[in-house]
């Protein structure tokens, strides 16, 4: 896919006015002058909301989300970062993204199979990266079925095949 057309981009969104209640709350609840002599409308519920939004970042929930997200990551992307066109494609075509992920997961399973490969993972990363560029990224929807993470056994044959690639 080509780079996004001139005039629009996927990296900077400009808004002249707040886009909803959330933007409004962000400025009028805890920013601005205060009057200390009289009374403020009871804001209990709303203030709790904004406090929650702040503390959520250092919570077990966040850690678990990060752990899950990082476990979803395919190591082929490490050391071979996505290019901008790829990102655009991923953002715009979620199905394509799934397909890509399916292929990558599948590739990983084929190459790594199971935990016994952990010891050679350093070399494995570069092999996988090469295997990915050799296969030209996402091309076949049929690999999707093989992207299932649960089975770690269909390994050895594929593994030797991919080794021969590198």
């Amino acid at each position: 896919m080509a780079v996004a057309p001139t005039g629009t981009n996927n990296y900077l969104q400009r808004q002249s006015s707040p886009s909803g209640l959330a933007d409004v709350l962000n400025v009028i609840l805890d920013k601005g002058l205060v009057i200390d002599i009289y009374l403020r409308v009871a804001l209990v519920g709303i203030e709790l909301l904004t406090v929650d939004a702040r503390i959520v970042i250092a919570s077990v929930d966040t850690y678990l989300r990060f752990a899950e997200a990082v476990n979803r990551m395919d190591l082929t992307q490490v050391g071979q970062q996505q290019t901008l066109p790829e990102l655009v494609e991923n953002l715009q075509e979620s199905t394509a993204k799934k397909r890509t992920r399916g292929v990558l997961e599948g590739a990983k399973e084929k190459i790594f199979g199971d935990d016994e490969d952990e010891g050679q993972s350093e070399g494995g990363e570069t092999r996988r990266a090469r295997a990915r560029s050799a296969s030209g990224g996402a091309s076949s929807g049929s690999s999707r079925a093989s992207g299932s993470r649960s089975s770690g056994s269909r390994s050895s044959g594929s593994r030797s095949r991919s080794s021969s690639k590198s």
Binding site: N9, Q13, R14, S17, G32, Q81, Q82, L87
Partner: peptide, 17 residues
């Protein structure tokens, strides 16, 4: 930083901050 982040610029608005 387009590959790493996406930005949102809001304003001009009153100087709440």
């Amino acid at each position: 930083r387009a590959e790493r982040m996406h930005f949102r610029l809001l304003g001009p608005r009153p100087p709440h901050s």
